[in-house]
């Protein structure tokens, strides 16, 4: 597993690591028991601050996805592969149907993206955003001042 930090994406580097780890957990690239790269390894390959990786791993740990084992590294606890979101799930079929209707109604790709993003924001407000904000306010951690 190697992370790819896009410096122009506008998404904070630690969030990119969180997202890429989750994506790997959804796709089965990472399985329970797998070891994540160490902060030193990520720093070396991506030239990012080691705290970035530690912060991402703390967030993944809070969500119960990974666990640190002192002296050994950070390991995957559970997978994110969900049958409800699989290729033949009813939810996916419904969404595909909705998108077909949106297209027939003349919506462009950007319109659909904006619409989906705004409903997503409305319906899922407060679930992941709150955690990200708490983090942005500087929760003390391993290498931080701890004041």
């Amino acid at each position: 597993m190697e992370f790819r930090i896009d410096r122009r994406s506008g998404v904070a580097a630690y969030q990119q690591i969180v997202q890429q780890t989750k994506q790997a957990l959804r796709l089965g690239v990472l399985l329970p028991g797998d070891r994540l790269p160490t902060a030193k390894e990520v720093s070396q390959t991506c030239a990012v601050n080691p705290n970035t990786t530690l912060k991402a791993y703390r967030e993944l740990e809070r969500e119960g996805l990974v666990e640190p084992r002192p002296g050994l590294g950070t390991f995957v606890r559970r997978s994110l592969a969900r049958p409800q979101a699989g290729a033949d799930s009813p939810l996916r079929t419904e969404l595909a149907g909705w998108m077909d209707r949106a297209r027939e109604a003349g919506l462009e790709r950007e319109d659909v993206t904006a619409l989906v993003a705004s409903v997503l924001e409305e319906r899922y407000a407060g679930s992941t955003v709150a955690a990200a904000n708490a983090e942005a306010l500087g929760t003390p951690g391993a290498r931080s001042t701890g004041e």
Binding site: Q44, A47, P50
Partner: peptide
């Protein structure tokens, strides 16, 4: 630049 920055960050990670 990328390589030496990586080395610098890895050094900081290992030795604080």
């Amino acid at each position: 630049r990328h390589e030496l920055m990586g080395t610098l960050m890895a050094e900081a990670a290992e030795h604080g």
